[in-house]
Design a protein around this nucleic acid. Structure first.
Lengths: 153, 153
DNA sequence: TTGACATCGTTGCATTCGCAACGAAATATG
DNA sequence: CATATTTCGTTGCGAATGCAACGATGTCAA
């Protein structure tokens, strides 16, 4: 009841363990790291690069801007991830002929093969999380839906 | 059904929008930034520093190690945040007399006053999130409880 | 008691990050 | 048309990050 209050100075009550920004930060870091260590070691891919690859494979995003919005990553981060992936031969950059400011990104066969290797790892991890969460999955997902809603304003 | 499958190459089905590590990363970044811009501008405090302050105020953590575990931050990150806060006069560092490897961190009155200013901002943001989530809050929190469980293994 | 081992906090270093500024290209305005 | 404004992707730069190594201290066992 009087948690966080000492004798002389009185701080407002505050429950860090229920505080959502903090909880999300802790869990997000943990989930990202647990998985990314797996594919970093095997394939030398960073988290940013993973996101770019998956977006190219599973969404209509073809430009840096599209990915930036879809994944809410800084465009400089996307740009550098794309460059590294291109140097490694996982994707190609071409200038969009309709709007020459835009890039047309495309997975190479080598890139598609890499995604084919990476996705099963991700799926296995997702299943592991869902097994841990059990019946709490639907409630979690709908809450996440709500929080993702106005992500692109 | 056949999403993510093009004619020649066949990628495994994968739904990025339900993928938990990705969703947590996006939301966590968004929540942290929205709040931290508020107090960065007003008080010049970073996210790492905020977490150290709140832990000192609202938990029994007094050493760098305690905070490191509680908040799952790298110890170097904690160490540097602590140093900055000390330089600004928000906390004091003393060597633990029982175990001289440990630090005894303590908020100064100035630091306690800062926390008293910061926490209402955090609470207002929490209320805003809960208002958006409505009845989805309990389901979310129990799911987060589950995911935080083995955080300290 | 002594020496091997573990723990705590700091620091060096290479990498990554976010932000702002930039050139090129497209669009809007006059 | 001319030119002001906006958009896209890249890059420079200072700050932050993660990781390993380190000195200092504590613990454990021979």
């Amino acid at each position: 009841m009087f948690e966080g209050c000492s004798m002389s100075d009185s701080l407002p009550d505050f429950d860090l363990d229920r505080y959502l920004p903090y909880r999300f930060a802790v869990i997000a870091t943990r989930l990202s790291n647990e998985l990314s260590t797996q594919y970093r070691e095997k394939y030398g891919i960073s988290i940013a690069e993973w996101r770019v690859l998956v977006n190219l494979a599973y969404s209509d995003s073809t430009s840096v801007r599209d990915i930036e919005k879809r994944v809410s990553m800084e465009k400089s981060k996307v740009s550098r991830a794309v460059s590294r992936l291109q140097e490694s031969g996982y994707l190609t950059k071409e200038i969009d002929s309709n709007d020459r400011r835009l890039l047309q990104l495309e997975l190479t066969p080598k890139g598609a093969k890499l995604v084919g290797d990476l996705v099963p790892l991700a799926q296995a991890y997702q299943r592991q999380l869902e097994a841990q969460l059990m019946d709490k999955v639907p409630g979690l997902q709908t809450a996440l839906d709500e929080l993702m809603k106005d992500a692109d304003l």
